[in-house]
Simulated scan of single mutants.
Amino acid sequence: MNTQVQSLQPSPASVQAGLARPMLVLFVALSLLTGLLYPGVITAIATAVFPRQAAGSLIGQDGKLVGSALIGQPFSDPKYFWGRLSATAPMPYNAAASAGSNLGPANPALTDAARARIDALRAADPHHRAPVPVDLVTASGSGLDPHISPAAAQYQAARVAGIRGMPIQQVRDLIAAHTEAPLLPVLGEPGVNVLKLNLALDGVAARR
């Protein structure tokens, strides 16, 4: 009797074969749903509702692509506003390798990087002895931050105005015009997009 009962039970191999098909069907269905259908629908909606943002918030000038409003660029020429430090490798603001410095406050490398940046700012404007805003001497968590604080922009206004031969009030007005308010009062702080501000400076120079 026991032998007959055991012979009616399915073998482990047949059980595995019976489970394989629904698992494979589920895998394919979820792959299509989450890997193709859902991203495709979201991309189509984003492109229709927010076309500029969906395309990467690209910035053009004189018919040429000059960058993105979402990714900073390294500026070192004193006639331009400088952005935040970037810890990405192998070059600053490498969008393919977003990363912060991950240096702790007790790490000497963090102090050395801040001192080097302060020295560069002092060398570019020797007569400016005001305290340097902290965001000009530290890297952001992403290494790609395109913004600086209004205080960091105002700190550089005298240098930029002097080198370009512009009235400092005109430079301050450009800073104010390019200061972006946070989405909500409780989300973030005002910021100045460095690339947009520098392009505006070049635009003023071109019209003079």
Results as ranks from 00 to 15, higher is better:
Pro39Thr: 08
Pro190Tyr: 07
Val28Phe: 14
Ala123Met: 08
His147Glu: 15
Thr43Ala: 15
Gly56Ala: 09
Pro51Phe: 10
Asn94Tyr: 04
Ile45Ser: 04
Gln4Ile: 15
Leu19Ser: 06
Leu36Pro: 01
Ser14Pro: 02
Met166Asn: 00
Ala54Phe: 09
Ser101Leu: 08
Met1Lys: 04
Asp173Glu: 12
Ile163Phe: 00
Ser7Tyr: 07
Gly35Phe: 08
Thr111Gln: 15
Ala20Leu: 15
Ala157Gly: 09
Ser142Phe: 08
Arg115Ser: 12
Val194Asn: 08
Gly162Cys: 04
Gln170Gly: 04
Val186Thr: 13
Val192Met: 01
Asn193Pro: 06
Ile42Phe: 05
Ile175Gly: 01
Ala17Ile: 12
Thr138Tyr: 03
Pro185Asp: 13
Ala124Trp: 11
Val192Asp: 00
Thr47Glu: 14
Asp145Trp: 00
Ser68Ile: 06
Val137Ile: 15
His147Met: 12
Gln16Gly: 15
Ile42Asp: 05
Ala139Val: 09
Ile42Met: 13
Asn94Glu: 06
Ala177Pro: 01
Ala157Pro: 09
Leu199Gln: 04
Leu184Tyr: 13
Leu8Ser: 11
His128Trp: 06
Met91Gln: 14
Pro133Leu: 13
Ala87Leu: 03
Gly100Thr: 13
Arg117Asp: 12
Val28Tyr: 02
Leu19Asn: 11
Val25Ile: 15
Ala109Val: 11
Ser76Gly: 05
Val66Cys: 07
Gly191His: 06
Asn102Ala: 15
Ser149Arg: 10
Asn198Leu: 06
Arg208Gly: 15
Arg21Phe: 11
Gln53Thr: 09
Gly72Asn: 04
Gln53Cys: 04
Ile118Thr: 14
Leu199Pro: 01
Val132Gln: 12
Asp112Phe: 05
Arg172Asn: 14
Glu189Ile: 09
Ala48Phe: 03
Val171Glu: 03
Leu183Cys: 01
Ala114Glu: 15
Asp119Cys: 05
Lys64Asp: 14
Glu180Pro: 02
Arg117Asn: 12
Thr34Tyr: 15
Arg21Tyr: 07
Gln170Glu: 13
His178Tyr: 13
Leu24Asn: 10
Ala96Gln: 13
Met23Asn: 10
Ala123Asn: 11
Ser98Phe: 02
Leu30Ala: 14
Pro92Met: 02
Val186Cys: 07
Leu85Ile: 08
Gly83Ala: 02
Val186Pro: 00
Gly72Trp: 00
Pro167Met: 03
Gly40Thr: 10
Ala44Thr: 14
Thr138Ile: 06
Leu70Arg: 10
Ala96Pro: 02
Pro185Lys: 11
Pro108Gln: 09
Thr179Tyr: 02
Gln9Arg: 13
Asn107Glu: 13
Phe81Ala: 03
Arg159Tyr: 05
Met91Asn: 05
Thr179Ala: 02
Asn94Ser: 04
Lys79Ala: 10
Tyr38Ile: 13
Ala109Thr: 11
Thr43Cys: 00
Asp145Gly: 01
Asn107Tyr: 09
Val171Met: 08
Ser57Phe: 12
Phe50Ile: 07
Ile168Ala: 05
Asp119Glu: 15
Leu58Gln: 14
